[in-house]
Design a protein around this nucleic acid. Sequence first.
DNA 1: AGAGGTACCTGGCAGC
DNA 2: TGCTGCCAGGTACCTC
Length: 271
Amino acid sequence: MPELPEVETTRRGIAPHLKGQRVTKVIVRQPMLRWPVPHDLAQLLTGQVITDVTRRGKYLLLQTAKGTLILHLGMSGSLRIINPQTAPEKHDHVDIVVGKNKCLRLRDPRRFGAVLWTGDEPVQHELLRKLGPEPLSDEFTAEYLFDRSRKRKQSIKQFIMDSHIVVGVGNIYANEALFLAGIRPGTAAGRLTRNRVEQLAQHIREVLEAAIKQGGTTLRDFTASDGKPGYFQQQLYVYGRGSEACRICNTPIKLMRQGQRATYYCPQCQR
DNA sequence: AGAGGTACCTGGCAGC
DNA sequence: TGCTGCCAGGTACCTC
């Protein structure tokens, strides 16, 4: 999926087109996403004014006076603002038309994404309630990460990718942050010293901020809402670079598997 | 409670 | 050209 920077880039792209706009039409072509799209979504949303477009972790939240539309892009989802006349393509599952001629269109070939509705405070929603802190907020401190990691035998990479620990760190940025912090991805989380956890927390923040600034990483199925590619790809140190020379020391980057996910690291720079 | 594996789904690509 | 197998940004849910 889009990881946090891609979701945030998407949010920034679509928000100006949606904020303050009234929903005039909702079209659901494929209701079977990760969970079924609410059957009465059109009824719930039509006529509502979108008051704000926010984000919690990788969930996008379209707020209205009546409730909140919760969107998740899964592995392959993307959102764009188009003219509602534009013919839908194969995997264009949901349209939310606002005003007279703007449409938020969700495309998601793999259908791991979600479109849900809640009438309550979105943070109270079952899926959002137990999420860890935002990595770019003041809540995400080295102290917090250190405390949570104590006695955990799980690898540090899987630990930072757990959204109940911290949200938004997906496979790309987990690999990158561990490289920048000089930590082997397979190290047990509980065995890292306070100092190293501090380094890691700092690099998680930095890599996500840098990626957001560059508009995310261009991936197979991801394009920002304006269709422009992200530029972060060009500065990945390890992700997707198996057998290639480390940009720092020239040692070949290693590829291994952790929890059926690809892990890349430099055996020289990461100890 | 924590750790590990499975499942959901489609498309692209390498190899034969 | 066509088939098969593997890979891909996520994460809830199940079992041990």
